[in-house]
Write a protein that binds this DNA or RNA. Structure first.
Lengths: 157, 157
DNA sequence: AAATAAGTTCGATACATACCGAACTAATAG
DNA sequence: CTATTAGTTCGGTATGTATCGAACTTATTT
């Protein structure tokens, strides 16, 4: 294939996209590098070199990714270094399950708004009710959707 | 009802929540104020006073909210001012429909990662494939979910 | 024990951007 | 035709935070 884009540009693009979706640029670069490298394991040190970042930034970034279960640390006998790889059997649905918390917060926010109103059935109150119902709907439906994904994934194994 | 929280605290809380969900604090305050005020229409000027914000901030904020269709401008005969209210018949599903763009971007990102790899069927390639499939699944399922919401809402009218 | 290696932590920096203030535009009023 | 009102625009500020650099920790090697 005739790649218009090289690996390094791809890694930077991953950084921008992951930043856009709420993580940090460096976290995105790490995922990007793990995606395109042909090595099975990448050392802490290799990240600092290939991503041109400080040890401290790599340290906090791999911790963030590890706590999200997106990457997994690995060690080798007779080797002091820590290596990383994309987490095997990562469950993608969990990335959304964690984010559904904001849905109930939005629901509660709109419901609470109604309680401040003198007229609890006017246009504004109706607007707030519909807003709250939308977020409640989403909060109820998304788990089912994620279950469906997990079940579907299980079948193909 | 015995409100532990007053209106002003509620408005600030709206600011923080909307900020958390990707908008700005001031935009959240505007929604919050429109939620709790008993006035049908709120003038530009009233926002600056009650939210203690500059005209420029209110100007950009109401523009943002107007472009999202969340609020609607209103004018009165013989009155030069612009008033605002929560948009009647706002379609809540659109707020998510707009955000689904990131899903296809994530899908494309993971697919592109595979193309850089020498081994296109190893563990990493499989990881990328599953990631891509997850985002494709979401991109496919969410419109249906939003349709379901819209249909359900239509029934109750 | 001294030196090296592998990460961590924490104060400082640099960058992005929400918000402000002042100058400006356009329309109406006196 | 000047003054006022209503809002916009744009350069600057200030706040939050991702990233950096240096000091520190802990373990290993010589």
């Amino acid at each position: 294939m005739n790649h218009i884009q090289n690996r390094q540009e791809y890694i930077e693009e991953c950084g921008l996209i992951m930043e856009q979706s709420g993580l940090t640029r460096m976290v995105g670069r790490i995922i990007g590098y793990l995606a395109v490298t042909d090595k099975e394991l990448v050392s802490f040190d290799e990240f600092t070199e290939v991503l041109q970042a400080s040890k401290s930034t790599i340290s906090t970034s791999v911790k963030m990714l590890t706590s999200m279960n997106l990457i997994k640390a690995a060690t080798l006998p007779g080797d002091r270094k820590t290596y990383y790889r994309l987490a095997p059997d990562y469950c993608w649905s969990q990335i959304l399950r964690l984010k559904t918390g904001i849905l109930s917060i939005m629901y509660a926010m709109f419901i609470k708004g109604i309680e401040f109103r003198i007229r609890k059935t006017d246009k504004t109150a109706q607007w707030l009710t519909e807003a709250a119902e939308f977020y409640k709907f989403m909060e109820q439906e998304i788990p089912g959707l994620l279950d469906k994904w997990e079940a579907q994934k299980q079948l193909t194994k």
